[in-house]
Simulated scan of single mutants.
Amino acid sequence: METIGYLKESGDRFEFHYDKLGLVIRGNYPEWVLAAASEIIQDTARLESQSRVEELSALVEFGEATEMDVDAHKVDMKFRFEVLPQCVVSMGAMDYRWASEEARRKVSAEFDGHALRRLHDMSLTRNNSFLQNEEGVEMSDGTA
């Protein structure tokens, strides 16, 4: 695995470094810095990808590339920029599904207003035992 970017705390601010672009973003909160990084990296990647289509189209005219090369790159662009962002998020031993805000609006019932949805449904039990009291376990706190 190769590190391509990193977030660090520097004094009372946070810095995100993304060496591929020579990008350094500084801000008061990590979520601000990562949001800025996400937008800048996405915009830059989209511009690079659009430039690649133009480059391949020019190469087709010179016989150095084929229309299939152009089409293949356009398909790659569609997968990257048309599909709404989604990720698996691990926190401790639990895995969650994250989807961008726009994606969550499209499947609002699945996320129920939350940014994450647990991947493993712990209520799925063999004997419908989820949240059932165990026999012999006293549940009162002693106050009446």
Score class of each variant (00 low, 15 high):
53 V>M: 13
83 V>G: 04
20 K>E: 12
22 G>Q: 06
28 N>R: 15
79 F>I: 03
38 S>D: 12
104 R>I: 01
75 V>I: 10
71 D>M: 13
25 I>G: 10
55 E>Y: 07
7 L>N: 09
92 G>Y: 01
113 G>S: 12
77 M>A: 13
42 Q>I: 03
6 Y>H: 08
85 P>M: 10
34 L>D: 06
31 E>C: 07
69 D>W: 12
36 A>Q: 09
104 R>N: 00
2 E>M: 09
94 M>L: 12
44 T>A: 12
9 E>S: 15
34 L>F: 07
84 L>R: 11
48 E>V: 00
114 H>K: 14
13 R>D: 06
44 T>Q: 10
104 R>P: 01
70 V>S: 09
47 L>E: 15
82 E>N: 12
13 R>M: 04
27 G>L: 01
22 G>S: 04
133 N>C: 07
5 G>T: 01
108 S>Y: 04
79 F>K: 06
136 G>A: 07
103 A>K: 06
36 A>F: 01
80 R>W: 00
66 T>K: 09
129 S>M: 12
92 G>F: 00
33 V>I: 02
32 W>H: 15
16 F>A: 12
60 V>K: 08
20 K>R: 11
64 E>R: 03
101 E>I: 06
60 V>Y: 04
98 W>Q: 02
1 M>L: 10
4 I>V: 15
51 S>H: 06
6 Y>C: 03
34 L>N: 09
106 K>W: 02
61 E>V: 05
116 L>T: 05
125 T>G: 10
63 G>I: 01
16 F>N: 05
101 E>V: 06
41 I>E: 11
60 V>A: 03
125 T>S: 11
72 A>P: 00
92 G>T: 00
73 H>I: 05
139 M>H: 14
70 V>D: 08
63 G>A: 02
136 G>R: 07
132 Q>K: 05
113 G>E: 08
141 D>A: 10
15 E>Q: 11
48 E>Q: 13
61 E>F: 00
34 L>I: 06
3 T>S: 07
137 V>D: 09
134 E>W: 14
27 G>A: 03
104 R>E: 00
75 V>Y: 08
109 A>S: 04
31 E>I: 04
126 R>L: 14
46 R>E: 15
125 T>A: 13
27 G>V: 00
55 E>F: 05
25 I>K: 14
53 V>S: 05
73 H>R: 08
21 L>M: 11
81 F>H: 02
19 D>L: 08
18 Y>I: 02
56 L>M: 07
96 Y>R: 04
54 E>M: 11
101 E>M: 03
126 R>E: 14
85 P>Q: 15
106 K>T: 09
11 G>V: 10
131 L>V: 05
4 I>A: 06
135 E>L: 13
142 G>K: 06
107 V>L: 08
56 L>K: 02
21 L>F: 11
139 M>C: 09
98 W>S: 04
96 Y>L: 01
103 A>H: 14
45 A>R: 14
43 D>G: 08
87 C>P: 00
51 S>R: 05
131 L>N: 12
1 M>V: 07
88 V>H: 06
141 D>H: 15
101 E>G: 10
95 D>Y: 03
34 L>P: 04
62 F>M: 13
111 F>L: 01
106 K>S: 05
73 H>L: 09
72 A>D: 09
134 E>Y: 15
62 F>G: 11
90 S>T: 13
132 Q>W: 01
69 D>E: 13
12 D>M: 12
83 V>Y: 06
101 E>P: 01
141 D>L: 09
25 I>L: 15
79 F>G: 02
32 W>A: 14
10 S>E: 14
95 D>A: 02
84 L>M: 10
